[in-house]
Every structure is written in structure tokens, then in C-alpha cells.
Amino acid sequence: MPAIELHRISHTFAGTPPVEALREVSLTVEAGEFASIVGPSGCGKTTILRILAGLIVPTAGEARIGGRSTIGRPGLAAYMPQRDLLLPWRRALENATLGAEIAGMPRGEARRRALELFEQFGLRGFERAWPAQLSGGMRQRLALLRTFLLPFDAILLDEPFGALDAITRRTMHAWLQDVWLRDRRTVLFVTHDVEEALMLADTVYIMTARPGRIAETMRVPFARPRPLDIVADPRFAALKERLLETLDRAVQEG
């Protein structure tokens, strides 16, 4: 059974005029796979994640996480939206444990597991800080930590590093790969950064401009763990070239 499954999902946002965001999108992510969706802005990438998070009911089609339909049913996957969305009224540690608490994990256990991750995510010493006292990079890491602490097998990440500078972003790539390799949960990662997608994913789905469709599926063959300087590898460059060409074509077609 696939971990994440979209079957002929179409979605049109009501309004004047109505906006057709997605047309017959199908994709399958196997358990333990790291998949990435790449596409131009406004191609419906975020809509796909919000459908899988159960926050948007699509006009047509079926979406499943671990075999269970997410249509109008939130709470099946760990979803990290684009903005870090920390609760300003909770200290860093309490922000990290929010989802675990809602899912019914005992408070003590949630805190213990969060504290372990604080070390891994480079947030140690900031457990009692308020979100407003953290830098942008730390807020983003805390949001990522909170997402990984949720007791779900599938993780949906929406441009988690979009707001970061290039240097922090590279560090975060190494971190994410590390953390993911540890327990190999299924990840669906949305980005518009081609290099980021190739660096992190096993499979890259390339989307067209609105209405979003899957233009092509690309396998990324590099062994793991991938070093950060893999970007300098000629095979990486070749793959990136091919991906960009496909993306250009997809944008023109859409």
C-alpha cells in the first residue's frame, strides 16, 4: 500500500472568475520514499499539500494517506505550511510539543522526545525562548522539529526553507537529510528550487503552470547520504539541466 496517493485530483477555487488550480493530478509515494514536487509559483503545489492535510476538499478525485481518504479528514499526516506558524503564546518547547499533545501523546513523553530533537536541530538552550526571540532560521527549524515530532508516518513540507538565506538553507538540507535517514518516514516536499529538489528527493514530480498537472516524473539516482558538494558533480549538473528544460517546457505548455 502506498504511503501517499493522489488519484485524478482536480480542484477549482470558487470565485469570480473561478480559478482552476489542479487538473487530474495523480501521484504515488511509497513508504519511506522522499518525493518532491517542483513547479512554478501558483501551479497548485500548496493546494496539493492542503488537500492531503485535509484542509481543502478537492472538486474531484481521491487523496489517501496510508490507505485512508483525506477528503475532509485532517489529522492523518504531519503538515508544515510555508510560514513557520509558531504560536506566539507558547515557548519554544511547548510549540514543539503542540501537535503531539493534540494527538494525545502524554505530556511527559512529548517533552522528552522534543528535548532529544532540540539537540539534533541545533536549538539546544532555546527551549524556554519565546518565538519572537528566535531568529528566522531558528523559527523555521523549530517548525520543522514540531512537524517531525507529530506521530504520523507521512510528512508534508511546503517550501520549508523558502524564507532562508542560501547559507542557512544548505545547513538545513544536510539536517533534513540526516533527520530523515534516521527513521525514514515518507516525505512529500514542495519547492520551486530545482537544486533543492535534486539534492533531497528520490523522485521529483515536475508540474506545469496553472492549472497544475504532472508534466514528468524524474528519478534521482544518487546514493545516500548525499554530500552537500554533490551539486558540483557533473551528473548532478546534467540532471539539473534536464529538469530545468522540462520545467521550461511545462511552464510554456501550461
Binding site: 485535509g54 489529522g75 506558524l85 504560536l87 494527538a103
Partner: peptide
């Protein structure tokens, strides 16, 4: 913040959770 409400709901939070963790604070 509508997005905070969406976040809590995506975690499987009920209306009560939304009220307690987002709306009231």
C-alpha cells in the same frame, strides 16, 4: 490567524483544541 487554525486542524485538532490553543490566546 486563519492559518494557525488550519495548522491545529491539520494536526487532528477538534473545535475545542482550536478554541483553546489558538482563539482564546
Amino acid at each position: 490567524d486563519r492559518e494557525l487554525i488550519g495548522l491545529v486542524r491539520s494536526m487532528g485538532g477538534t473545535r475545542r483544541d482550536v478554541l483553546r490553543h489558538v482563539l482564546i490566546p
